[in-house]
Amino acid sequence: PGLLEPTSTLIRVPKSASTLGIAIEGGAKTRQPLPRIVTIQRGGSAHNCGQLKVGQVILEVNGISLQGREHREAARIIAEAFKTKEKDYIDFLVTELN
């Protein structure tokens, strides 16, 4: 069991707009080893959902761990989760801890 587990939250973001509307920084081999939300754009699916917040760190996307993923790979996983037509939502496991 990881230390982050007790404070992690699962947030389901419906694809309610044509964009997800978050900016992330971080990834493996950077100062911020897991992607952190730095912006939530108004009018995007994330903003419409109302539960994702700036400063949250993304641990998993649709059950896929972002641990050890470099920035571009993490960004690709999130982009593909938004693009896929298999699901009309994305599940984010996030934590406020950094």
């Binding site: 964009t19 509307g21 900016a23 920084e25 100062r31 911020q32 730095v38 912006t39 938004f82």
Partner: peptide
């Protein structure tokens, strides 16, 4: 030797 200081900042991607 602070490991944290040697790691580069990350780029930012808008999704």
């Amino acid at each position: 030797r602070e490991k944290r200081l040697t790691l580069p900042p990350s780029e930012i991607t808008l999704l």
